[in-house]
Amino acid sequence: MPEDIKVLFTPTDAAVGGLAGFQAAQAIDDCMEAWTKALRSLAGMVGSTADAVGSSAKGFTHEDQERRKAFLGPTLQASAHRASTRRTVGTEHAGLGAP
């Protein structure tokens, strides 16, 4: 998004140039600088938040897998693995693919 703000520079610069000598020219320029700064800050915050959400999701997935393993225990884990292996063996040749 910060790069997208550049499309506003040309019309803003034209307005500032057309109002040379007027206080409005400086006000428009100051406004554009303030908005540019605010939008860059917002883009940074959104990016940081997205990273945090992704990290949180990975943490929940990992924790869920660990809880599953703890619930099943070593004996049931091996049994579940053997059962999933049996379900997929031979399905490739029948054109069924993995379930």
Rank of each mutant, 00 (worst) to 15 (best):
V46Y: 00
W35L: 12
T85Y: 03
G21R: 05
R40F: 04
Q65T: 07
A78Q: 13
L96N: 01
A20E: 14
T61Q: 09
E33P: 00
K58W: 01
Q26D: 13
E63P: 00
D13A: 12
F71W: 13
L96C: 01
G90D: 00
V53F: 10
K69G: 12
A34N: 07
T61A: 12
I5F: 15
T88I: 13
E92K: 11
A25H: 03
T10P: 06
L42A: 11
A43E: 07
I28T: 01
G95R: 11
P11K: 06
M1A: 15
T49K: 07
R40K: 11
G21Q: 08
A57L: 13
W35I: 09
E3V: 06
K58R: 13
A43Q: 05
A52K: 12
K6C: 08
E3G: 09
T49N: 04
P2H: 04
A20I: 01
V16F: 06
S41M: 01
A52F: 01
G59D: 09
L76P: 01
Q23A: 12
A38S: 04
K37G: 00
A38M: 10
L39S: 04
S48C: 03
R68W: 08
G21N: 08
Q77H: 04
V53E: 07
D30A: 14
H62S: 10
A43C: 09
K58N: 12
L8C: 11
S48E: 08
S84G: 04
Q65G: 09
A80M: 09
E63R: 04
G97V: 03
G54D: 01
R68Q: 09
I28S: 02
A20S: 14
K6H: 06
E66Y: 07
W35P: 00
S84E: 15
S55F: 00
C31N: 10
G90C: 01
L72G: 07
A25T: 03
E63C: 08
P11Q: 03
L96R: 09
K69F: 10
F22V: 06
T75A: 14
D64T: 15
K69E: 10
S41C: 00
R40Y: 02
